[in-house]
């Protein structure tokens, strides 16, 4: 699991980021926390994208993860970071597993829009339900670590970085297994996969569940980072669109890409908002167009070009 270039780079980068974070100003630590939290969901969407499937509704799982944390906090007083993270991933993963029985039968626009429809149902329920915080959502208490309440955000930053590292290593390993290699094979030719003796439906179901677990974990980490959940910023269809935006911005080439893409997105959005509070979407949209026209393989394809990987081949 650790003996390829990607794994070595991830380990080294995570170590440097953890050390660097101790000396970095708060705003940088925050950017990394938000970016890496979102990157987990992007990792899952990347697995789906490689299979030729795009979901415009993964805010459903992102929101489930975030609300699992909020409900555990407000109703049961659970503040442990690991319990919260696990709850987010398990709730979203279980929902993904169940919904996966439906989703594995659909492709293309139907797959994309069915996910959107499901996320909109959850959005509607949350907005209309007082006990779920309605439109205001919940404030979330600071996370504790094995009963200890850290004074700064640094320990949470380290945990998010390490969770991101673990997820990236696991997905990197997964992509090298038979199941993982089937991602591109299914996108290319489902008929051949079936005739080789493998169930396409089972493979898609697993990939979908993985993406739901990752999106749930991402939502849980984001909720703890922000200290607040509300339907608009966690479940709405615009959040799903944002996740797809970052997935395309990142590119599907490598598990490192979602982390770089998410950080670029966070920084871009922050500065776009500062520069043009009334027209920041214009900057984001222009960036999106630039990526589609000039870097269809996302930021990762640029890194590959700069690194001369294609020339080596």
């Amino acid at each position: 699991m650790f003996n390829d270039r990607t794994a070595k780079f991830l380990l080294l980068a995570a170590m440097m980021i953890c050390v660097g974070g101790a000396f970095a100003p708060n705003w940088i630590v925050n950017q990394f926390m938000f970016g890496f939290s979102r990157a987990l969901a992007i990792l899952g969407l990347m697995v789906l994208w490689r299979t030729g499937l795009v979901s415009f509704g993964h805010a459903f799982y992102f929101g489930l993860g975030a609300y699992a944390v909020a409900i555990l906090d407000s109703k049961f007083g659970v503040s442990d970071v690991f319990l919260r993270l696990m709850a987010g991933a398990v709730v979203a993963g279980s929902a993904g597993f169940l919904i996966g029985f439906i989703m594995r039968n659909y492709r293309d626009i139907f797959f994309a829009m069915l996910n959107t429809a499901i996320s909109m149902v959850l959005f509607g329920i949350v907005v209309k339900t007082e006990s779920l915080g309605s439109t205001d959502g919940f404030a979330i208490s600071a996370s504790t670590i094995f009963g200890l309440a850290p004074e700064t955000k640094y320990p949470l930053f380290v945990i998010i970085t390490l969770v991101g590292l673990t997820a990236a290593l696991l997905v990197n390993f997964y992509l090298k297994t038979t199941f993982g290699k089937l991602t591109t094979a299914i996108r290319d030719n489902e008929i051949r996969v079936e005739y080789l003796g493998f169930s396409v439906a089972h493979a898609i179901h697993l990939k979908y569940t993985i993406s739901a677990i990752l999106a749930g974990g991402a939502g849980a980490l984001m909720a703890m980072s922000l200290g607040q959940v509300d339907p608009e910023s966690m479940i709405n269809w615009t959040v799903s669109g944002e996740l797809v935006f970052v997935t395309i911005l990142s590119g599907p080439g490598n598990v490192i890409a979602p982390f770089i893409g998410s950080l670029v997105f966070e920084i871009l959005r922050t500065y776009a908002f500062e520069l043009a509070p009334q027209a920041w979407q214009l900057i984001m949209g222009a960036t999106f167009l630039t990526i589609i026209f000039f870097l269809p393989g996302g930021i990762w394809s640029l890194i590959e070009k700069l690194g001369g990987k294609k020339n080596e081949k």
Binding site: T177, T178, K181, A185, F198
Partner: peptide
């Protein structure tokens, strides 16, 4: 080679050990 590796990997484990490394 990748096409054949996928076919070989599936034939090898019949999907029962699909989480083993392919290469």
């Amino acid at each position: 080679a990748e096409n054949l590796m996928i076919a070989l990997a599936i034939a090898n484990n019949r999907g029962t050990d699909a989480l083993s490394l392919m290469d």
